[in-house]
Structures are given as structure tokens and as C-alpha cells.
């Protein structure tokens, strides 16, 4: 019996090593090409180790934008605040929907889900946010539009509550005189740590990666998020690529960013997430099942 287990574990580990390599290899390609000189890149293509090591790409990125450090600060704060509010709103919305005894539950579920399917479009949203709510160039623009609560995560959370929180626990709490808010925060949430950590991670990623809100609602450079700055850099590069006669003078030539820069841009946007991820993993631990239910 023990032998079988070891064999099984070894196979599992081999499979995952393979998957890890498949996931990591292209990333290595990315990092190494961001550290290679432009000429080498064009001649020999990408390689897993930098043939011709240089920090030129990163110099360019950090030189190009003195704002990038401020952008990091803004992104971190916005992500932290936004994720907190969003997770709270999501959980507050999902819990009632998971209670079968709530009248009108199906109607609200439909109202929720409908928003995943139908979208007014960018122009009406923009007109509303800027003319009705005046969020242009405010921090609200980074926190609220399309990010504050997503039907997807509400539904995930609701499914989790339905499947993993036994009704008996809740009934027991109610009989003991607990209010719904207490039931939610004292009993249900502690049992839902894995799912909460999951949606916190996913929502956090959405905030971190968002650049469209910056693109449309922010023109003040001192409110740009990291992704906005990086995306602008890439857009500028694309613009030059598609308008070849524009770069045809010596002045412009000197200023051209290279392929290595594009790779560097990606690395710069990704590293903080990788650094923060282990923090979330702590919570992917099996939840404690409250005793006294079975039997």
C-alpha cells in the first residue's frame, strides 16, 4: 500500500515538473531577452540565456518614465484598497443569494447574471461616468468602473457557500439568536477561507492588470498606474511601427525603444505579483470542519 503511494507521488511530481517547465520556459525566454542587446536579438532570436548581457532595456524603461515609481505606489494602493472593498461587496452580495429561504432570490440572481451578458458599451459608460459622476482624473476612476464587483466572482462565491456551508450550522446559529451579519462574519466566512483567498487573488489581479480605466479616465500623468505607463510605452512603439515615415529622421532615431524594451516592460509588470502570490497561498489550506454536525 505504501509502495503504491510513493509511485503515485513520484508520477504526480514528474507531471508537475513538466508542467512547471512548460509554464516557466517562455517566461525565462522573456527575462533573458530583456537582458540581451538589441543587435543580438535581431540576429539570433530569443534564447534561454542572454547571449550578450545588458541592462539597456531596463535603463530605458526607468529613464523613460520618472513616473514609474509613483505609478507603482499608486497601483499597489489602488489594488489593496480596491480588492478589499471588492471582496467585501462580493461576499455581502453572494451570501444572501446562497440562502434558499430568501424571497426573490432567483430574481436578484437573474439581475446579477444579466450584467455578465449585456453591456451598454464603452461610449455610454464613458458618458455616464464623466458627465454624471465626474470621475475623470480622480482615484475613483481607478477603483470603481467595471472593477468594483464582478458577477463572476459573486456567482463563484455563492456556489461555494451553497456547496460547502451546511445549512445546519446556519440554522443552529440563528436559533441561538444570531443576526445575519453575525452569521456571515463569525461563522460562514471563517469556513470559506480558500474561496475568499481565491477571489481575493483574482480580483487583485484584475485591479493590478487594469489599464483601460487609466486609458479612458485619467489624463493627469501623476495618477497613472503601472500597467497604464507600460501600456502607453507599448502603444507608442506600435504607433511608430505603423507610421514608418515618422521615424525617418535622426532626432527620432536616437529615441527608439527596442524589442528588449518590450520584453522588459512585461517583466516589470509581472514581478510584483509573483512576489505577492505566496502570501495568498497560506490560505489555500483545507478549512476546518466545525464539529458536532454529523450525528
Amino acid at each position: 500500500m505504501v509502495k503504491k503511494n510513493i509511485v503515485g507521488q513520484v508520477i504526480l511530481n514528474i507531471i508537475f515538473i513538466f508542467l512547471a517547465v512548460a509554464a516557466l520556459a517562455p517566461f525565462l525566454l522573456l527575462v533573458s531577452s530583456s537582458l540581451t542587446s538589441e543587435a543580438t536579438l535581431a540576429k539570433y532570436g530569443y534564447n534561454f540565456y542572454p547571449r550578450d548581457f545588458t541592462l539597456a532595456a531596463y535603463e530605458y524603461i526607468f529613464k523613460s518614465s520618472k513616473l514609474i515609481f509613483r505609478a507603482y505606489a499608486i497601483t499597489i494602493i489602488v489594488t489593496a484598497v480596491g480588492t478589499t472593498i471588492s471582496v467585501l461587496t462580493t461576499v455581502l452580495f453572494a451570501y444572501p443569494l446562497s440562502r434558499k429561504e430568501l424571497p426573490g432570490r432567483m430574481v436578484v440572481s437573474f439581475i446579477l447574471f444579466f450584467t455578465m451578458l449585456f453591456n451598454g458599451g464603452l461610449v455610454p459608460s464613458y458618458i455616464m461616468w464623466t458627465q454624471m459622476f465626474h470621475i475623470k482624473n480622480t482615484y475613483f476612476a481607478l477603483l470603481i468602473p467595471s472593477l468594483l464587483m464582478s458577477a463572476f466572482y459573486v456567482i463563484m462565491m455563492r456556489s461555494y457557500f451553497t456547496a460547502n456551508i451546511p445549512n445546519e450550522i446556519i440554522e443552529a446559529a440563528r436559533v441561538d439568536g444570531a443576526r445575519e451579519f453575525m452569521v456571515l462574519f463569525r461563522i460562514v466566512l471563517p469556513l470559506s477561507k480558500p474561496m475568499i483567498a481565491t477571489i481575493a487573488l483574482m480580483i487583485g489581479l484584475r485591479y493590478w492588470n487594469d489599464w483601460t480605466n487609466s486609458l479612458y479616465y485619467i489624463t493627469d500623468a501623476d495618477k497613472f498606474s503601472v500597467q497604464a505607463v507600460l501600456n502607453t510605452m507599448l502603444n507608442n512603439i506600435n504607433f511608430l511601427a505603423q507610421n514608418p515615415d515618422v521615424i525617418a529622421d535622426s532626432s527620432m532615431m536616437k529615441e527608439l525603444p527596442s524589442t528588449a524594451v518590450r520584453m522588459g516592460v512585461a517583466v516589470v509588470g509581472v514581478l510584483p505579483i509573483l512576489a505577492a502570490y505566496p502570501f495568498f497561498q497560506k490560505h489555500f489550506v483545507k478549512g476546518i470542519v466545525v464539529g458536532g454536525i454529523k450525528g
Binding site: T115, F118, G120, V123, P124, S125, I127, M128, F133
Partner: peptide
């Protein structure tokens, strides 16, 4: 606010 009001824009 975020979803239903702009839906009129359809």
C-alpha cells in the same frame, strides 16, 4: 450604476 444605467446606451 455601473451596468444598468449605461445599458440604455444599447
Amino acid at each position: 450604476i455601473n451596468n444598468y444605467i449605461p445599458m440604455g446606451g444599447l
